[in-house]
Design a protein around this nucleic acid. Structure first.
Lengths: 281, 281
DNA sequence: TCGGATTACGTGCACCGTAATGATC
DNA sequence: GATCATTACGGTGCACGTAATCCGA
């Protein structure tokens, strides 16, 4: 049986055209490479080189061998790659979410229920992307804000409702409720990683001016103290409390309220049964 | 880089399910195999086995690795096979002929003109088969009894004419010439390896009874002394002389005379130029 | 107790390096 | 003389073997 390191050496020679050049690249001595190539010819039972006294070159066999060898090496690399990827996928749960809040429930639960697995998460704006990813195996679990198709399995586990947080002195501060039209055109402070809520902003507030912030802490600080209105949700207030010195006004719109569903492929239902049971509570 | 012998060992283990069984098949010791499998896991950076104290089995990774490994080994074998075949084809001229007689000219000429090549010959009943083989690279040269298509290159180099050889006492012995109808229905001695002449027998002598002989010497003996008529050709008589105590009668039929053409692919024309030149004489 | 896996340790070979030689420019 | 390949020879790592140990049926 011919071994791959010999093919790697042949490949190097094929690139350089000289044993010395190839040997240098391979970090082995020239005589060692010379012997290896003999060994390769011997193992294959086929001559691969035209040898003159101090010159060596591939013959037709050698050219073909170098091509086929390179292909084989490529396939071997692919195989290793696939194995490592498969292994990684076996020990990680890839979680796709449509917004940050579902993570608050799912992350700790997954860590607790599957302690030997690592959880990797990705946020997408659209449920469609998440569903495609789930079906393709990119995700094992997804959190959407729409009920799952019948060929998937899932259940609702949380709702989130959108409010506007404005400074006390803000013109809207005395309102009891708002519709998107009240906000459109304003300057608004916005955290970048909000998943599908971006769609709400794009569709319902096409004329608003957003000040995007991608650091959560900094955003929290500015949102709590600055002069700009910002969005906040019931979920956030449950966790972090109601902001001081701000007026929090509910937004009345069908898209201002979301129900989150945890979804997996139908065949994985049993595997994630513990998770779904816990989410029911 | 992972080496193939490790995959071979993994494959053996995958078949047996135990290290001891696989080690036996591989003619190595059990500890050696145990270490090899560790080395494989280490090289791949992936666990392949579920180990309990005195039991070891493939895990999901291992199952996949065994599958992929087997595929890779298969590809490596294919590569070796292809190389050896290619090498063989480089140093052999495959010659397809439609009858034995063309070999008398071509074999010695090829041996003389291409002394470093070995010549392998194959006989076929139909020119079509030969031409397909030529186009597919199965043959480098063919001898047909019909002129070559325009996309091929070839030239005529010999004719052969069919006679019937009958004992002196045979009812046909006084005839000056024969047509197939005179012979059909008779018992005839026939050598098996006659190439396209079989077609003549099938088409023109559908009711004849053939006594097939596949050994040339034995055939020659029986044909020269026995009571049965047999075919003979001018080429044979030129080489071996006219048979004693027999009457040799020409057969009158368009298919009873053949002109042989030596044919190669158009792009090989120059390569076989020396051969064609010699055949012209 | 037997079959099977691992650990520990020794060994031989194969691969590689160094040195020397030969050959061509 | 410089470059490049081969031959010769010596060293070392590694794949394998043997022996010992542990474990479970």
């Amino acid at each position: 049986m011919i071994e791959l390191y010999l093919l790697e050496q042949l490949k190097a020679f094929s690139r350089h055209g000289t044993l010395s050049g190839a040997a240098e690249e391979l970090h082995i001595s020239q005589p060692a490479l010379s012997q290896s190539m003999k060994k390769l010819e011997d193992g294959l039972g086929v001559s691969l080189f035209e040898r003159s006294k101090n010159r060596i070159a591939l013959n037709e066999n050698g050219i073909l061998a170098a091509q086929l060898g390179e292909k084989l090496l490529e396939q071997s690399r692919e195989m290793e790659e696939r194995l490592r990827l498969f292994d990684r996928s076996r020990r990680t749960i890839s979680l796709g979410v449509c917004a940050p809040v579902p993570l608050w429930d799912l992350s700790p639960l997954l860590a607790q229920l599957y302690p030997q697995m690592t959880v990797s998460t990705q946020m997408k704006d659209s449920d469609e992307e998440l569903i495609v990813g789930l079906n393709r195996g990119v995700y094992q679990l997804i959190a959407t804000h729409s009920p799952p198709d019948i060929d998937l399995y899932g259940q609702p586990f949380r709702t989130e409702r959108l409010f506007l947080s404005v400074p006390l002195a803000h013109p809207l501060a005395n309102r009891k409720e708002l519709v998107p039209g009240d906000i459109d055109g304003q300057n608004l402070l916005l955290y970048t990683d909000i998943g599908f809520w971006h769609n709400f902003c794009r569709e319902k507030l096409p004329n608003a001016h957003f000040l995007m912030m991608n650091e959560w802490d900094a955003f929290g600080e500015v949102a709590g103290t600055g002069a700009f209105p910002s969005f906040i949700t019931d979920a956030h207030m449950e966790r972090d409390g109601v902001p001081q010195n701000r007026v929090v006004i509910p937004i009345i719109d069908e898209q201002a309220e979301a129900t989150y569903y945890c979804v997996c492929r139908a065949e994985s239902k049993d595997k994630y049964r513990p998770l779904f049971n816990r989410l029911k509570k």
